[in-house]
């Protein structure tokens, strides 16, 4: 796709290239004889790239398919169509030992720091597990050293290793989760709403930690979130999803200052401004209408049912992702 090369103008090979990714889930069959399979269109024809050292923020409302996109890249859910390239290699269908090897290169930071740590394993065991299963720790001493280095890296006390997860606060647990993800020294970290389960006061700490780590280790992030202020803080570029489609992707400032898609406009107008008079003066754009049924997405634009600018073309033809400004892509017929 020539479109993709234009999104990232630098000639460097993207770390991750997603090309027409489609994920459909079979949820049953319809019709008298069960002849029609029922499918949820979780992600449809999604294409983007992430350059090494970059943070791509992936934003969308619940059910828009952002988590599924992350899981598909990690090969936790099978892609129904499209290709995923990691460092130039097609990883869409790798399996077995190759897939295990891929785990060393991309890791996940979980949303819920309370459920993502095994309550029966001490912190040192949890963080050392990746090293053990990949045979990377030469001895017990080696593993201990590497774990304490990781703990140091994420700002946990040195004696944390001997304790169990329940002895830690949410923010500390998320640090443990990040340490576990970093144990294999991956290039790509997919963060699935890593701060949405945390107290607001802790969020900044964890986000700053992630930024520091990126600088220190040259990490690349796919940062999935619905908190727009957090995304603005951490991302270099931002992708907006709606009902399983990528509708806009651009640099952070371009998105926030000059959104092209009507949905992005509405989304951004919902972000409160930390200045009460200014906040009162703002008008919130809100569109009536329903999100389309993911089992039967409409023929044209997915946003047609809520869009105030919708025309006959929007109802019948799907708008392609087009370059509206340099490196600013949006899928809308009218902008």
């Amino acid at each position: 796709m020539s479109v993709l090369e234009a999104v990232v103008p630098e000639p460097a090979e993207p770390l991750l290239r997603v090309d027409g990714l489609t994920v459909h889930f079979n949820v049953g069959r319809a019709g008298f004889w069960g002849q029609r399979p029922l499918q949820v269109h979780a992600v449809d024809d999604m294409s983007f790239t992430i350059a090494p050292g970059e943070t791509l923020g992936l934003v969308g409302e619940s059910g828009s398919g952002k988590t599924t996109t992350g899981r598909a890249i990690l090969r936790r859910v099978p892609a129904s169509g499209g290709k995923i390239y990691f460092q130039g290699h097609d990883i869409t269908h790798v399996a077995g030992a190759e897939l295990r090897l891929l785990r060393r290169h991309m890791q996940l930071v979980f949303q819920d720091p309370y459920a993502s740590l095994n309550p029966r394993m001490r912190v040192i065991e949890t963080v050392a597990e990746p090293l053990i299963v990949h045979g990377l720790a030469k001895s017990v001493q080696d593993a201990t050293d590497r774990v304490s280095h990781l703990m140091n890296l994420v700002g946990l006390p040195a004696d944390a290793g001997d304790r169990y997860p329940h002895a830690f606060s949410g923010g500390q647990r998320q640090r443990i989760g990040i340490a576990r993800a970093l144990a294999l020294e991956p290039e790509l970290l997919i963060a699935d709403e890593p701060v949405s389960a945390l107290d607001v006061s802790i969020r900044a700490q964890v986000v700053n930690l992630m930024q520091d780590l990126q600088e220190e280790l040259g990490l690349t992030y796919l940062f999935i979130a619905h908190d727009l202020s957090v995304v603005r803080h951490i991302s270099h570029r931002i992708a907006i999803m709606y009902a399983g489609k990528l509708i806009e992707i651009a640099g952070r400032d371009a998105i926030y200052e000059d959104p092209k898609h009507p949905y992005t406009e509405a989304l951004l107008s919902a972000v409160p401004v930390p200045d009460p008079p200014l906040q009162r003066a703002r008008s919130r754009i809100s569109y009536a209408g329903e999100v389309p049924n993911p089992m039967q997405p409409p023929a044209g634009c997915r946003f047609q049912s809520r869009c105030p600018f919708a025309t006959a073309q929007c109802l019948s033809e799907e708008p392609p992702l087009a370059e509206k400004a340099p490196a600013h892509w949006a899928a809308c017929w009218h902008r």
Binding site: R100, A115, S116, N118, L184
Partner: peptide
């Protein structure tokens, strides 16, 4: 379905280890 089991799988644990270390203790 617990996230920590998914975490173990994502980290590269083989099924036997996931079952023995993460599921069986429960």
């Amino acid at each position: 379905e617990e996230p920590y089991v998914e975490a173990a799988e994502l980290v590269g644990c083989k099924p036997a280890r996931v079952l023995y270390r993460h599921v069986l203790p429960n």
